[in-house]
């Protein structure tokens, strides 16, 4: 026991000064209040309008729509990834013709809306029915799902090619030179030295591209593919129940948020050797 403590008995700390009620606090409370009211309102309409008959009738079709959306997105992303390799190589090629062709491809698919491309394939290729029949491809383009898959693959290949090119070009020159100094053949250097580093840079844009595809895939509902959006539209046109859109919104939001979190975890895991 020191002399100070005997002379001055321990005291409680002074009370914290009350927080000033600022304007931003007011706006924050108002904004949160609006969100809360909206959330409660939507919840109440869902509870009030809850109809087990509707749920048992449209619930399974929503799930099948979700499956169609996921199948479309996953297969077009994978096929687009394969197709994007030659396009990216063409973009980086020193051959004028190849690089110009790849540039035109990428510019077209990135410069026009996905829905216009889809219409061009789905409605437009119908004009070439005799020719397509002659080469035996008409059965493929007759089906809306195939048209959607074809368009989405071409579209995402253009975006993925740009991601890949940017990532490969972001690898510093010294890495190429280092690999050459070690006497590695060019192919080995590309696959073992350049590509792994490029993929880390490309990881985040790839995640964004998948999210964009999930969101973009909603437009296939317009060309009569019954994905999640298509099932929602069908259910809405039969019931005129606004809840259907709320359910679809929740499903889309949870898909995107799930992917975002998984991707964040994946990125943290794959870049843990870069942390200092």
């Amino acid at each position: 026991m020191s002399i100070a403590e005997t002379m001055i008995p321990p005291q409680a700390p002074p009370p914290a000064p009350p927080k000033a009620y600022t304007l931003s606090r007011f706006f924050g409370s108002v904004a949160l209040g609006i969100w809360l009211a909206l959330g409660v309102g939507i919840f109440l309409t869902v509870v009030n309008g809850w109809d087990p008959e509707k749920f048992s009738r449209y619930g399974p079709s929503f799930l099948s729509g979700l499956g169609v959306t996921l199948a479309l997105v996953i297969s077009s992303i994978l096929m687009g990834a394969v197709l994007s390799l030659p396009v990216a190589l063409g973009r980086m090629s020193k051959n004028k013709i190849w690089s110009w062709l790849a540039y035109a491809y990428v510019y077209f698919f990135r410069g026009t809306p996905l829905i216009t491309q889809l219409f061009l394939v789905y409605y437009g290729l119908g004009s070439f029915r005799p020719q397509l029949d002659a080469i035996g491809l008409w059965w493929f383009f007759r089906d809306a799902w195939n048209c959607a898959l074809f368009t989405f693959t071409l579209n995402t290949a253009a975006y993925q090619a740009e991601i890949l090119r940017g990532a490969i070009q972001s690898v510093p020159r010294g890495q190429h030179e280092g690999a050459a100094a070690l006497g590695l053949p060019q192919r080995v250097a590309f696959f073992k030295v350049i590509l792994p580093q490029a993929m880390i840079v490309a990881l985040r844009p790839y995640g964004n591209e998948i999210i964009l595809m999930i969101k973009g895939s909603a437009i296939v509902a317009i060309v009569t593919v019954f994905d999640l959006m298509g099932e929602t539209r069908r259910a809405f046109s039969r019931t005129f129940d606004y809840q259907m859109y709320v359910w679809a919104a929740l499903l889309y939001l949870s898909m995107v948020e799930l992917l975002r979190n998984v991707w964040g975890w994946l990125e943290a895991r794959l870049t843990r050797h870069l942390k200092r």
């Binding site: 969101k215 909603a218 919104a249 939001l253």
Partner: peptide, 9 residues
């Protein structure tokens, strides 16, 4: 919310 929803929706 508005980044996660499809624009069409």
């Amino acid at each position: 919310i508005f980044r996660g929803l499809p624009e069409l929706l």
